[in-house]
Simulated assay, not measured.
Amino acid sequence: MWQRYGMSIGGERYARGVTVDGRSSVTIALNRQCTAYDALAGVDDMTLGLGRVSFSVYADGVPLWRSSTVGGRDRAVPVHVNLTGHRTVRLVAQPHGHVFDRAVPVDWAESRFTCR
């Protein structure tokens, strides 16, 4: 996981977020009561239009959200997940297509938790 300031998805610039590989799973333990997770997910423009992935969000092992397949140059997909009552969140990126898709950098831009 690479915390970044300044990234681009589908030609749109974002101020902050995290970048991971096209095949990744990041688990976050919520250390307080959180009500939501929001982000904009997509393939980073540094891939020059390559790569195809899908994104998923799980809470306490339960799937709560999944994108369709997102390709290089596609606009970011908005993510909003209700986390009320959950203790962990897992962000998953799954490659589709070419073996290169496993290593392509993908972003969870403007990634944020709403907590008390």
Rank of each mutant, 00 (worst) to 15 (best):
R112M: 11
P78V: 01
S111H: 12
P63D: 01
F113Q: 06
V26Y: 10
R32A: 09
R87G: 08
V104N: 00
P78S: 08
L50D: 13
A39M: 06
C34W: 05
F113E: 09
H86D: 02
G61P: 07
V99Q: 13
G71H: 04
G85T: 03
T19A: 15
R13V: 14
L50E: 13
V92L: 03
V53H: 04
M1L: 15
T69Q: 14
Q33K: 14
L40G: 05
R90A: 07
D44R: 12
R4H: 11
M7T: 13
I9N: 08
V53T: 07
R90C: 03
R112C: 10
G17Q: 09
W108S: 09
R66Q: 15
G17C: 06
L30K: 10
Y37C: 06
R87F: 01
D45H: 08
Y37P: 05
A39D: 06
A29Y: 09
S56E: 13
G72E: 00
Y37H: 11
H86M: 09
G22K: 02
S56P: 05
G61Q: 12
Y58R: 13
R73D: 09
H80Q: 11
V62H: 13
L50K: 14
H96I: 00
M46T: 14
T35N: 11
H80L: 03
R75A: 15
A39V: 00
R23I: 03
G42K: 09
C115R: 07
I28R: 11
T88E: 05
T47K: 08
M46W: 10
G11I: 03
N82M: 07
S8K: 13
D101Y: 01
V43F: 01
L83S: 02
P78C: 05
R13I: 10
G51W: 00
R16G: 14
A29N: 14
V62N: 14
F100Y: 10
E12H: 12
R16C: 13
A109R: 10
P63N: 04
I9H: 10
D21N: 12
V70C: 03
Q33P: 08
V77G: 02
L40P: 01
L40F: 13
D101V: 01
S25H: 03
F100E: 06
V57S: 09
Q94F: 07
S24F: 00
